[in-house]
Structures are given as structure tokens and as C-alpha cells.
Nucleic acid binder design. Structure first.
Length: 845
RNA sequence: GCCCCCAUAGCCCAAUCGGCAGAGGCAGCCGACUUAAAAUCGGUCCAGUCAGGGUUCGAGUCCCUGUGGGGGCACCA
């Protein structure tokens, strides 16, 4: 089918006279007509003053800013179309709305493109940004473009660096020399979060380990608060995001228990283990320390050292993908030392294994093989003893090979014997440990500190200078930003060190403290640092003197809605929450939670599958826009279903959306009453539909059921059409009222069509700022309602009654209904349930 | 393995509190307009809510079990 035909751009249209054009819907002509008008009017520029002074109530509509990879695609279209419904609704409701847009413009793809094309990463980055910005404008999203920012601009990353230094001052940024995830393909370290199933999240290569000196943010200091504050978000954030964050933080309660190790040189050393089951302490038949934790190498007996070193070397070689296989048999090595169990006094052997993680808990565990499957597997592999201390009535784990973790009665457990309750068991044993000074209650988190160093060029330089005598010295604030040296093409090829290390003129500087020759830190920051505070910068994007203007930021924050992909459920959202809390502690921010509510859109798929180049099933946004126009595509995305559901484009009908828009648009041409005609004397039936629709739409938008708003608008269009053709006629003022309501409702989703209707109705632009029509409450009440009369739950009659009928009257009327009498067939009435005015249910004896 | 979410017509989806299962759209079918077709307009068919059990006067909605699908965590002691 001819594309221009579908979008209403027929050959006939082009030949028509001006007069005729006005009766033909032409999506592309409307886009060309209205875009420059909006550019001129700037109707969505947020007024800081009105909000700062409290003159107007604010709403902050935030959508996750994109990475500039090529042009916009269906996913961008969906998220912004949904988001725009909310932002435009708030404007109509009279709020001062801030709806900013920017770009998360540091990152690896630009660097890879620069190497490929022998150019500067900025070329790719800013070229794509310009393309996307133009597309967003054409897509009619109500962004306030005066707040546009890019994280790769020195004016922005200057403040990213400043924040890093403030975090360091507070002890929240620190260096650690430790094994890190290393992607051999991208030649860079990866955060734990970027490792998925042992592979690099980006390129899929198997991740290995490397020892590097890295910067970390101490997010673990905020683990408890990050967890606790989720409770307050549970009602306005999607369940799965809250759950994912809880899982990620991974709080567990247990105890620290001290075991005394007896080393080969006859010295003793206390090692603390973390356990969630201190009540099983009597069943601890050996100890295991993480092979790579340092402790193992320190305590290993001389005659076991060779075997240990061999094992450690083998462990280090194994990639995470091997380590994470659950089927993998347990391996380990006896360290040749013993430890004393603090409650039983028993001597138990100490082993090293890779199944104990160095960076969780204390890196050492007490092994209770009878009641922990991992320990049992290890014990059976190594021939270590198994002792049951809780009798659950199941087969003894020693013979079954299945550890029991349920409740039962304690056996062989000293003071615990006879108890059957796990909580009581834990309390009893911990009390004893605490009184004897050999243990304490303890809480542990799965959450690790945030590794932020990256050995890449296209990122925010870490503002630190390494001096031999002074150590890591912060770059003085007045020397910020530390800008990136000019590097391009082959300069950026991965060499195992950061590309910045090869920029000698840039690297070699004098130490700001002692003046001696020193070197800049050559790593750049994880781009999640850039995106952890951009929503704060939007509030005063051009302030050259401070990270943000606290007064303005506190006036706008928190974001009242944050719309974006669920793929950021953990990382970005957790980091941004962390930043907000630190900034609050710094006294710069009043709120401790940055995003009051959240909406996660689904993804756009095609024919049941994710769109991808390899599958060849991609749907081009550009082609869809050319074929159906902006409004029809936006309407399709919003109408498809609940915002959080995935959209299968193959199930959608943009042609149907276009047809509806044309129907709605044509209504405007049938209104013959003058602009400003009051609707009071208009047709009541139509007015009721209009007012009920507006009333309902408001609630539906607030609960994010945008697809239903569209359906209600369709009903209103249908009712108006009927009124014009076979009812009160186009001259009735109720018709004008209805069509104006349609234009206003449509402006949320189909701004071009709505604007054109608004003009045809005799108004000046823009409909987007026309205001939400006042709903006449008296038109919401029905004068007659249909009451259903049931007998034993089955409908046996209907009554037309007044909405304020009394229960007694309704019951009488219901019992008198002939259909009901027939159904009762003379039976005695046992009970009558009356729900005036809608339902009566009669229960016969 | 543990935790969370979902399942309504051929398809996409509605159904504030437990109260007539159907608002809207797509597709289909019939009709009007047309020489004809497209477009447009009007009309219309279609499920008893994944399965089984429970609570209730009454269950798509609440509870339990199972099936199917989606997601999170996973050698985290």
C-alpha cells in the first residue's frame, strides 16, 4: 500500500483547493504546520520563579535520559509517549511542570565507534544527540528544551568530579587493591552488576579476574537506609523494582562467632565467621575459609603450603562462569590447622575452598554439613564428619546426602537440647556467646561497594593526582574540571591500561600538595556516576557556580514521576537513591528519596520476539511515522494496553489509530455554534457523556491507565458523532463542548491532531495549555439507574429506579417484580440483600 | 532451589468496594454509498474469565492447590 495514502496524503489532497484541504485530514501537513508554531510559543518552558516563590504548584515529570546510540527507535517512542501523557495532563491541570530531557552521553559505544571510524568519540556522540533531539521535537513531546544537558559536557562533568571529591572527603570514596572482574574483550574492569552469568554484559565475553587498584563508593554504609526506605516507596513504585532492590541489598540476620585457630607455629589466632544459623553451632564439624581471601595464605601450615598454592592458582584461573555452575563438585585443600568450637570446645579441621566467598561476611564459615547442603557436599567429597544437631524426623543427612534445614528438636547441642523452636534456639545460643564474649548478633548485606573506576577514555576523569610522597591527592576545586585530552581513533584502542595513561602530557603534572612530579589518575568513572545526579542538575542546568542551586532543586524535588525501563530497576535507581541520601547528609538536598513515584513501560516486540537485527524483525520508527504520522503512532503505543505490558507491534493497528484520529478530527468541522457559546442550554444527554468522560479520564490518568483514557475518548467521539448525525445536531452547544473536550483529551496523546481541531474550533494555540475543563458534578449523577434483581444470584428482573431510592422501597419493588415472583415460585424468602440503588439479591428458603 | 508478578472473546484489552462478564479497538460477517473497488458510514456475531477446590446470598475479583507464561536472586553461609 502506498504510504502517503495511509497517512491521508493522497494525490487528490495535493491537488485540492485550500477550502477542500480543510475537510481532509493530513497528518504530515499538520506536523509541518504546528511544529514551528510550538517552537515559537515554547509552551512547556518551566518557570523556576513561579515554583521557587510557591506561586504555582510544581510537578516534576522525569523520564530516563537516553544514551545517544543512533536515532530514536520504538522503545524511545513508547516511553516518551507514555511519559508525555502525564506531563501534558499536569499542565492542563494548572501545575507548573518541569519535563526536561538530556543525554547520558559518556560510554563505550562512542569509543568503539571512534576507533572504527578513526574519529573523536564526541563526533559520534554529539552527532547522534542532534539527530535524536530533532526526532524528539518532531515526535511532539512536551520537553523543556532550555534545560537540555549532556553528561559529557565539561560544564556537566565538572560537577560530577566535584561530587566525587565531596564523597572522598566524607570517606565515601576510597581506593582498594583487589581482584576485579576483567573483560578480556573490552579490556576493562566491570562492576559486579555488569557481569551476567559470568559473562560481560556488553560483549558476552567470559569474564576473568585481575588485581587492580580501584576506586569504590561506599554504598554499603547506606545499605540499611536504602532497604528501609523502600517501605515508603512500596505503594508508588512497581512491585518488581522494590523486590529486586530488596533482593539486591540482601540483608540477612545472624551472628558473628569467634573460633580460635591453632597455627603450626603454636600461636593462636581468632577468626570470626558469619552464620545465619548460630543454633547449629554444635554441628560445626569443620571450618572453611575462602581460598583467595588472604587469611588462608596466612594460616596455612608449612607442610600444606605447596598443595594450597597449587589450589589457589587453579582457583584464580577458573573464570566466574565455571565457579558459578551449581553442579560443580566441591574442591578444597586442608590447611593443616585446627580451630576450637567456642561452645563445645571441640577441635575441628580448617580447610580452604572456593565455595566460600572472600568478599561476603568475613570470608570464613563454620561448616555444618548436616544442615547446609553446600557444607554437606563438601564434607562428603572430603570425607569429613557429619553430625546432626536438629532432628526433623527426616532421614539423617549423613546417610541421605540431603541436608535438613527445617525445624525440629535439638540434639547433641548442650544447652539447646530439648528445644524445638528455631528462634528460641538462636536466641539461646547467641545470648550465651555474647555473655562469654565469643560472639555477637550480626547483620550482613549482599550489597557490595560500588566499583567505579573504568579503564576507558570516554568518561568522566577521576580528579585525583597520585604523588609518591603525598599519595592520592584531590585536584583542587578551582582546577576543575579535569578535561579529557584530545584523543581519537587508534589512540583509543584497548591496551590493557586506560587510554589516558598514554597521554603523557596530560598525565604528568605537579602534585598540588608538595609540587613534586606526580601523575593523574588515568581511569574514568562508571557512567552510572554521571546518571546518579542528572535529575538534580535539571533544576538549575546553567548554574556555573555550583553543582546545583539548592533552593531551586529543593523547590522542584522530588521527581513526582520517573518513567523508564525496568532494566534499571536495581543499578541506576539504587545508585541515584544513594546519591540523594549522601547529598541530603551534605545538607544540599532536603529529600532523601529522589523519585516519589515510578512507572516502568514494557518493551516493544514484534511477532512475539524481541526486535533484533539478527532476527530481521525490527520495526523502524521512522517508517511507521512516515506511513501513519506521529499522532497515530503515539496513539497506538498508548492505546496498546497497560503501560507496563509489552507491546507486540504485530498485534497493533496503527491504521486503526489513524482512522480514529480522522473521525475525531472531522468532528471539529461539524461544530457550527460560535466559539465561546456556553454549553448550559445544550443537549443534556451528550453533556453527561462529556462530563463523565472528563471526570473518569482524570482518575484514569492519575492511576496510569492511559489505554482506558483512549478508549473513553473513543466513546465520547462515537457519542458526539451520533449526536451530530442523528441527535441534537452540530449547532447544539453541547456538541461544541464535547468536541473541545475531545481535543483536550487528545492533546495528551495526539498533539498535532488536537491542535488542528482546536484551531478549527476557533481557538488560538495552544490546546496543550487550554486547561482542563471544569467538570459539572450535577451532570455526573444519573436520574435513573437500572437495578438488577437477582434470585439466588441469578438475574431475574430489572428495575428503573431513582439513584437515591431507599433500601426499603427498593426491596419492596424488587419483591413485587413479576420476573422475581416467577423465579420464587411461591417459595419463602429467607434473606434479602439490598445494595441500593444497583442490586437486590433475594435468597429463598 | 527461593521470592515476586500475570492468565477474561480469533487477537489487543476493559470491568473503583466481591454485585448484570464487555467499555474501546483489531480481525470477521452483513448492509449503505459506488459502474466497481478502496476509503468512509451504519449494523452485527463472538467468551462465562487457565484447571480444581474453598469462603460468600453472590467470586474475573478473596483464600488454597496445580498448570502455563514473565521477572528477580542464586555456592551470599
Amino acid at each position: 500500500m502506498c504510504r502517503c495514502h495511509r497517512a491521508g496524503l493522497t494525490r487528490e489532497t495535493r491537488r485540492m483547493s485550500t477550502e477542500q484541504i480543510e475537510t481532509t485530514y493530513d497528518a504530515h501537513a499538520m506536523e509541518a504546520k504546528w511544529l514551528p508554531v510550538w517552537e515559537e510559543l515554547q509552551p512547556f518552558r518551566a518557570d523556576d520563579e513561579a515554583v521557587r516563590t510557591g506561586e504555582k504548584q510544581k510537578r516534576y515529570a522525569l523520564t530516563m535520559f537516553p544514551y545517544p546510540s543512533g536515532d530514536l527507535h520504538m522503545g524511545h517512542a513508547e516511553v516518551t509517549a507514555l511519559h508525555d501523557v502525564i506531563a501534558r495532563y499536569w499542565w492542563l491541570r494548572g501545575f507548573e511542570v518541569m519535563n526536561p530531557m538530556g543525554w547520558d552521553s559518556f560510554g563505550l559505544p562512542a569509543e568503539n565507534a571512534a576507533i572504527r571510524n578513526d574519529e573523536h568519540p564526541a563526533t559520534y556522540t554529539y552527532g547522534n544527540i542532534d539527530t535524536q533531539a530533532a526526532s524528539f521535537k518532531k515526535f511532539g513531546i512536551s520537553f523543556d528544551w532550555s534545560r537540555r544537558l549532556h553528561t559529557s559536557d565539561p560544564e556537566y562533568y565538572r560537577w560530577t568530579q566535584w561530587l566525587f571529591l565531596k564523597f572522598a572527603e566524607r570517606g565515601l570514596a576510597y581506593q582498594k587493591y583487589s581482584p576485579v572482574n576483567w573483560c578480556p574483550n573490552d579490556q576493562t574492569v566491570l562492576a559486579n552488576e555488569q557481569v551476567v552469568d559470568g559473562r560481560c554484559e556488553r560483549c558476552g565475553a567470559e569474564v576473568t579476574k585481575r588485581e587492580l587498584n580501584q576506586w569504590y563508593f561506599k554504598i554499603t554504609d547506606y545499605a540499611q537506609e536504602l532497604l528501609d526506605d523502600l517501605d515508603g516507596l512500596a505503594s508508588t513504585w512497581p512491585d518488581r523494582v522494590v523486590t529486586a532492590q530488596r533482593n539486591w541489598i540482601g540483608r540477612s540476620e545472624g551472628a558473628h562467632v569467634d573460633f580460635t585457630l591453632h597455627l603450626a607455629d603454636r600461636s593462636d589466632r581468632v577468626v570470626t565467621v558469619y552464620t545465619t544459623r548460630p543454633d547449629t553451632l554444635y554441628g560445626a564439624t569443620f571450618m572453611v575459609v575462602a581460598a583467595d581471601a588472604g587469611l588462608a595464605a596466612e594460616i596455612v601450615a608449612p607442610e600444606r603450603r605447596e598443595a594450597f598454592e597449587a589450589y589457589l592458582a587453579q582457583t584464580r584461573k577458573a573464570s566466574d562462569i565455571d565457579r558459578m555452575s551449581t553442579e560443580r563438585p566441591k574442591t578444597g585443600v586442608d590447611l593443616g590447622v585446627t580451630a576450637t568450637n567456642p561452645v563445645s570446645g571441640e577441635q575441628v579441621p580448617v580447610w580452604a575452598s572456593d565455595y566460600v566467598l572472600a568478599d561476603y561476611g568475613t570470608g570464613a564459615i563454620m561448616a555444618v554439613p548436616a544442615h547446609d547442603q553446600r557444607d554437606l557436599d563438601f564434607a562428603r567429597a572430603m570425607g569429613l564428619p557429619v553430625r546432626r544437631v536438629i532432628d526433623t524426623g527426616e532421614e539423617n543427612p549423613e546417610t541421605s546426602g540431603v541436608a535438613t534445614t527445617g525445624d525440629g528438636s535439638y540434639v547433641s547441642s548442650g544447652v539447646l537440647d530439648g528445644l524445638t523452636d528455631k528462634q528460641a534456639g538462636i536466641a539461646t545460643i547467641v545470648d550465651r556467646l555474647e555473655s562469654e564474649g565469643t560472639g555477637t548478633r550480626a547483620v550482613n548485606f549482599r550489597l557490595r561497594d560500588w566499583l567505579l573506576s573504568r579503564q576507558r577514555y570516554w568518561g568522566c576523569p577521576i580528579p585525583i593526582i597520585h604523588c609518591e610522597s603525598c599519595g592520592a591527592v584531590p585536584v583542587p576545586e578551582d582546577q576543575l574540571p579535569v578535561t579529557l585530552p584530545d584523543m581519537r581513533g587508534a589512540d583509543l584502542k584497548p591496551k590493557g591500561v586506560s587510554p589516558l595513561a598514554t597521554a603523557t602530557d596530560w598525565v604528568n603534572v605537579d602534585c598540588p600538595r608538595c609540587g613534586a612530579a606526580a601523575k593523574r589518575d588515568t581511569d574514568t568513572m562508571d557512567t552510572f556516576v554521571d546518571s546518579s545526579w542528572y535529575f538534580l542538575r535539571y533544576c538549575s542546568p546553567n548554574d556555573g557556580t555550583q553543582v546545583f542551586d539548592p533552593e531551586l532543586t529543593n523547590a522542584w524535588m522530588p521527581a513526582d514521576i520517573y518513567v523508564g525501563g525496568v532494566e534499571h530497576a536495581v543499578l541506576h535507581l539504587l545508585y541515584a537513591r544513594f546519591f540523594a541520601k549522601v547529598l541530603a547528609d551534605m545538607g544540599l538536598l532536603e529529600v532523601r528519596e529522589p523519585f516519589a513515584a515510578q512507572l516502568n513501560q514494557g518493551v516493544v516486540i514484534n511477532e512475539g520476539k524481541k526486535m533484533s537485527k539478527s532476527l530481521g524483525n525490527g520495526v523502524s520508527l521512522g517508517e511507521q511515522l512516515a506511513e501513519f504520522g506521529v499522532d497515530a503512532v503515539r496513539l497506538t503505543l498508548v492505546f496498546a494496553g497497560p503501560p507496563e505490558d509489552d507491546i507486540d507491534w504485530a498485534d497493533m493497528s496503527p491504521a486503526g489509530s489513524l482512522r480514529f484520529l480522522q473521525r475525531a478530527w472531522r468532528l471539529a468541522g461539524d461544530v457550527t455554534s460560535a466559539v465561546g457559546t456556553p454549553a448550559d442550554q445544550g443537549d443534556t444527554a451528550l453533556r453527561k457523556v462529556t462530563h463523565r468522560t472528563l471526570h473518569e479520564a482524570a482518575g484514569l490518568i492519575e492511576s496510569h491507565r492511559f489505554n482506558v483514557v483512549v478508549a473513553r475518548t473513543m466513546e465520547l467521539v462515537n457519542a458526539t458523532r451520533k449526536a451530530i448525525d442523528s441527535g441534537c445536531g452540530g449547532a447544539d452547544p453541547a456538541v461544541r463542548e464535547a468536541v473541545e473536550a475531545v481535543a483536550i483529551l487528545l492533546s495528551l496523546v495526539a498533539p498535532y491532531t488536537a491542535e488542528d481541531m482546536w484551531e478549527r474550533l476557533g481557538h488560538a494555540p495552544t490546546v496543550a495549555r487550554a486547561g482542563w475543563p471544569e467538570v459539572d458534578e450535577s451532570l455526573l449523577v444519573e436520574d435513573v439507574v437500572t437495578c438488577v434483581v437477582q434470585v439466588k444470584g441469578k438475574v431475574r428482573g430489572r428495575l428503573e429506579v431513582s439513584p437515591d431510592i431507599s433500601e426499603a422501597d427498593l426491596q419492596a419493588a424488587a419483591l413485587a417484580d413479576p420476573g422475581v415472583q416467577r423465579a420464587l415460585n411461591g417459595a419463602q424468602v429467607r434473606k434479602v440483600i439490598v445494595r441500593a440503588p444497583k442490586l437486590v439479591n433475594i435468597v429463598p428458603a
